[in-house]
Each structure stands twice: as structure tokens, then as C-alpha cells.
Design a protein around this nucleic acid. Structure first.
Lengths: 352, 352
DNA sequence: AGATTCACCACAATCGGTTGCGGTCTTCGA
DNA sequence: TCGAAGACCGCAACCGATTGTGGTGAATCT
């Protein structure tokens, strides 16, 4: 099965390669007689012709390649996004180049440059920092980019993500409804949009539901990880200011917080309620089952892909970037319960 | 930042493009004087030259593209593999094309064809069926392929995976050590190697540890999923033959089995012990924490990538395919315990 | 009938690198 | 001093598809 090329098809159909090309190309097909088109198509089929994408891309300057950039594919947040995007892209004839930056900026820069060398038509980026030089570079280079999951300052890129603000508000409302009056927020890193937005939303929701400043504290985690969630929680515990509920920046932070609480002898949800964010797979099966905010991740990826493709078709002359916030749900499970009668800041029933 | 091409660099360095090409190419650099090389390299640097991979690939017939084919990136088994492979591939100058077949053979075939059209140099395939026409097609086309996670009949492809046989043996040994004498295996689908191998290993281990045929039953699941694990477990329960332990084909099946057991009023590990396979993220945090077999997934991906690259460098004249089995560990957690005194086939203490 | 239009197709340039071949200039040995 | 060897570099063909331009013959118009 040696590679059959256009010239082979042309020879088999007894036409010039140029003609064969037109015959095979739907929007140029009008320039070729129906009978010839048929002959060429038939020959292509018979020989099992698959066009060489490299050559085509070289000539047309359109590779139909899309780069998807994620920080860590191992983080359960991203596979559904990638999957959603991949599905709509491949069915539209695009191919996905995946790259995992490992949260390393330098690495990320190299990867993106390498992908540019590969002639990708555009990027779906899930790693955006709030102020990201990489993004402005890409914008200057005129490369279409769609942000997902995270946004960036300036609102200059198309963007699709979950409605963080609504999610946090639902969480706080839920906790307040359960009688909690003193809540801490373990915020994600403040150099990414989700970290900032959720923290801001937390403060706003606290005020809205009548919780004073002192009772709505925020502690910032250095990253969205169990480890940093744990240390942030430990720091809050060390401060010895009473609280009965935790709104975590995401599920990983929530898990870390749960560990710290359990180490300190607090039971969840009896002593402290915890709510997460993202509804990662299996968090509903944990003990306690985590109350969390569910995002339509796969749809998010699919939408990001759609956005990117319209941007690609737009060829420059684009309107203001579309920014989509997807609705979110609060999934109430076992990690939240009515506030204890008195805040048990010291009821250490430490486990053995 | 208009695209700067080789001709631009050549002009800046006042040499012919061909010379510039050689100067930039490490293994042809010998044909150019050191001084010229320096001048060209400097110019390239200054202009920010990034070679056009399409053009290069077109001419050299080497794209430095590798396709990774997984059934479902959402399955926590695959991201670590992809990550491992991606890291070693990108640092070797390759780029990863990811495709998610959704367990759909037709889709998979289309994807692979499309990737071939893109000129990928080779594939890492994690979706292999035991008898897979796609694979033989690829082999005939002379496309290098490395199988990972799953093998295929004939042993004709390089392959890297966990040592299923050892994993299952460890599991059975562990259970027997706890006093279990009647164990059922919820096997994975029998058209993939892991399903077959683990089932075979189960029977062998049972015999080795002196468990009779009637006490080492096997029930096959239609897929590696919670749903099919559940129905398989339910079928076993319906048969009303007593047993005290379950060796699941993988963690997802184990989770499904856990559900079925719990619905039927059996407690784990008090009534029935369960052991999984793969040690997916967070299964250690479940209730009960799942005893399972841990595979070095990321290393698996990395090794697969290495294998593929050596195969690519070999250019056809290859020896017998390397087949690597990675060592596995049994991670003992809460879902396994000593066998109950009497097999409690009917001690329904059904939950409310 | 002659001129014009139109449909259809062939030709060749082009995308951006790579590489075999050959030419020039230097260097070294005899 | 002359010839051969070798180092260095330019030339141009090539990878495989796309597309603007132009040419041929048939159909149409007057």
C-alpha cells in the first residue's frame, strides 16, 4: 500500500493533476464537467487516495490543526474539556495537537512556539494566567485563541467557562441556609481568573447574605492542589478563629482541607461543612461525599472548539470576542450539614 | 511578527538558503565553515526564525508527529499514560496528536486514516483489540506502532504494559492469606488483552493457591465500566453461590461491584472483600478505600514513547519487537479484610 | 457565416524547506 | 610549481497539493 498521490489519481482518470484537484475539491468542482468529476472521484476511491495534509497546508496556509494547551492532563478537570473539544474538532476535519505544560511557563512557551512552527491554525488554551504575556504575543502574531476554564485580563479573547460567580453564590447560600454564619474561603491562586473571581464572588455573596467581614475570611492557596489546600486549611486552624464551614476554591483544595480538618480532630460535616468546586469524578463517592459545584466541562470544551472555528472562518475581521459563561449546579452531598449549635473551635475529639 | 522564513535568514546572513539550511541542521553543519554557521545561527536567533514544519516534513517525509490513540481520555487510566508519553516525545522534538476514539471502531478507523494523511510517523495505541484488523492494516502499510496498556494477538507489535499476571496473582495471594477460599473474578471484556490475561491469571493463581474450580468463578463484564461491573456482580449475586471475595478486572468494575454489593445488603469488607486494578486517582479516598493493583502508568507512557522513537530511528530493519511488562504493586487498603467465619451468603442486613 | 462567449481543462508557478551535484578556492604533497 | 584533494558554498530539483492564467473547442448570437 504505497502512498498514492494526487498525480496517481490524475493519471488513472486521465486528467491533469490540477484538474483532479479541482474535481476533488467541493467548492471548485463547478469548474469541472460532471463526467470528469465522476471519473476522478471514482479513481480516487479505487486507489484509496488520501490527500497529503502537509502539502495542502503548505500551499494553502491552513493546516486544520488546533493546539490544545492544558496545564496537567492528569488533573481530572481537563480530560472532559479536551474530549468535548476533540470531538467537535475532529468531526469538522480538524486534528488536535495536545500539549501538557506541566505548569511550567518556560516549557509552555516552547511548546506553543513549536506548535506555531507546525502551523496550527489556532489554540484552545486552558492555562491562561491573569496577565499573560504569552497571550498578548499570540494576539500580536494574529493567531486565533480561545480561552477556556480560565479567563485573562482585558477581556480581549473569546472565552468559555463555568459561571464561577453563580457557583460560589449557590454554595454560600446553601451554607447560610444550613445556619452557618462563619465561613472561610480557601481561594485558589490569585494569578488565575478562577482564583480571583471565586474569591470576589465569595465576598460579594457573604455580604449579600448578611455575613460580616470578620466572619467571611479568605485564605489563599498557592495552587489548586491537595497539598496547598491542606496547608491553607492548617493555617486557618492555627489562627484559632472559629468557623463552621469552608468554601474551597476547587475540589482538590477541598480534599486537602478535609485532611487537615480530620487531622485536627474535626469531623465533617458534624463540626465543619465543606463545599468544593468542579465535581471531579468520584468525589461523590468519597467519605463524606463532597458537596460541590458541577460544571458542564465537556460542553465547555465543545463550545470552545465551536468558538475557535468560527473565529478561524472569520479570517481576521472579527467582532468583539464572545464570552460565554455556562450555568452551574450545586450538587448537595454529605459534606455539608446544619451548623453545629456552638462553633466547636476547640472540641478536639482527636482521632487515635 | 510576520513569519520569517529560511530565505529571510539566508539573506540576513548573506548566504544561499541551502547553506543556511545546512548551517542550522546539526548533522549537516560539518559542511559549512564555523564562521558561516555562527553568522547564520546568529541571524536566525535575531529574526526569531522558526522553521516551517510542514515544508520540512513534505521534503523529508518525516513529520515528527506521533498519534496517540486512546478510547476515552476521560477514563483516569489514560491521562497519566498520555502525559508520560507526551513529555518524552515533546522533549525529543516530536508533537503529539491526540485522538479519543470513544470506543467506536468506525470512528477510530477514520481518525487513524486522517492522522495518516497528516503524515504521522507512528502511533501509540492504547485501544487495541485482541484481534484488530486496524493493526494489521497499519503493519502492512509499514507504519510503526507501539501498543500500550493492551496487547494484541500474534505478539507482532512492540508493547509496554503492566504485569497483569503478577498483579492478579498478588491479589489472589493477598485474599487467600486473609482466609478467603471462595473468590469470584469479574473479568473485563474478553476481546482485549487485559481482560483475557487477567482472567487467565486468575484461574492460574487460584489453582496455585489451592482453590478449586468451583470456588474460583469468573464472570465477564461487557466493558470496563461501573455499569457493567455492577450488572456482572448482580448476576453473580443472583446465582446465590456463596463467595467472600471479588477480584475485579479494574477499579471501575470494582466500584460497580461495590454498588451492587451494597444494594444487596453486603458490607465491604466485613462480608465481602474487593480488590480492584489500576489504582485510579482517589480510589484510596473512597469508603472503603479500595485495595488495588498499582501500575506505573506514567512510566508506561514514557516507555512506549521511547520504544516508538527507537523504532522510528530503526527505519524498517528492526529486530523482534520489544515487549515490556512493568512491575506492579498491590496497594492494600480498607476494602479487603479477613474472610468472615462463615460465608454469609444470605446474611442480609439490608440498609434502609 | 463570422464573431463572441462559455465550459472545460492543461500548464506552470508556488508554498518553504532539504539535498545531490558541481563549481570555486584554498591547501597540501610531490 | 603544478596537480590533486578537500573544504565550502551556490544552484536547482524536489516533496505533493493548489490555483491563476491561458488555450482549445463547442455553443450561441447576430
Amino acid at each position: 500500500m504505497a502512498k498514492v498521490k494526487l498525480a496517481d489519481v490524475a493519471r488513472a482518470a486521465e486528467v491533469h493533476p490540477g484538474t483532479a484537484s479541482r474535481a476533488l475539491n467541493p467548492d471548485q468542482r463547478g469548474q469541472v464537467s460532471a463526467e470528469t468529476v465522476d471519473r476522478v472521484v471514482r479513481a480516487a476511491q479505487r486507489l484509496g487516495y488520501v490527500p497529503n495534509a502537509q502539502a495542502r497546508a503548505l500551499r494553502t496556509a491552513r493546516s486544520h490543526l488546533v493546539g490544545i494547551v492544558v496545564p496537567d492532563i492528569t488533573n481530572p478537570l481537563f480530560p472532559p474539556i479536551v474530549r468535548g473539544a476533540e470531538h467537535v474538532l475532529t468531526s469538522a476535519g480538524y486534528t488536535v495537537l495536545l500539549t501538557d505544560t506541566d505548569n511550567d511557563r518556560e516549557r509552555e512557551r516552547r511548546q506553543i512556539e513549536s506548535l506555531l512552527g507546525r502551523g496550527v491554525d489556532g489554540f484552545i488554551i486552558a492555562t491562561a494566567l491573569w496577565d499573560d504575556p504569552l497571550l498578548t504575543d499570540l494576539a500580536e502574531a494574529g493567531v486565533p485563541v480561545v480561552l477556556t476554564n480560565r479567563s485573562a485580563s482585558g477581556g480581549r479573547w473569546p472565552y468559555v467557562a463555568g459561571d464561577d460567580q453563580a457557583g460560589v453564590r449557590l454554595s454560600v447560600q446553601h451554607l447560610v441556609g444550613l445556619g452557618h454564619r462563619s465561613i472561610v474561603h480557601l481561594a485558589g491562586p490569585q494569578n488565575v481568573s478562577t482564583g480571583r473571581d471565586r474569591a470576589r464572588a465569595f465576598r460579594a455573596a457573604a455580604k449579600e447574605f448578611g455575613i460580616g467581614n470578620g466572619d467571611a475570611r479568605v485564605s489563599v492557596c498557592l495552587s489548586y492542589s491537595e497539598a496547598h489546600g491542606r496547608t491553607a486549611m492548617e493555617k486557618v486552624l492555627a489562627a484559632r478563629t472559629p468557623f463552621t464551614a469552608v468554601v474551597a476554591g476547587n475540589d482538590l483544595i477541598a480534599l486537602g482541607a478535609l485532611d487537615a480538618l480530620s487531622d485536627a480532630g474535626y469531623a465533617c460535616p458534624e463540626d465543619v461543612s465543606v463545599v468544593g468546586f468542579n465535581d471531579m469524578p468520584f468525589v461523590g463517592r468519597l467519605q463524606p461525599a463532597l458537596t460541590t459545584v458541577r460544571l458542564p466541562l465537556q460542553r465547555m470544551g465543545a463550545l470552545a472548539a465551536d468558538l475557535l472555528m468560527t473565529e478561524l472562518d472569520a479570517e481576521g475581521r472579527q467582532d468583539a470576542p464572545t464570552r460565554t459563561l455556562l450555568g452551574v449546579d450545586l450538587v448537595v452531598r454529605g459534606s455539608t450539614a446544619a451548623a453545629p449549635k456552638r462553633s466547636r473551635s476547640r472540641s478536639r475529639s482527636r482521632r487515635t
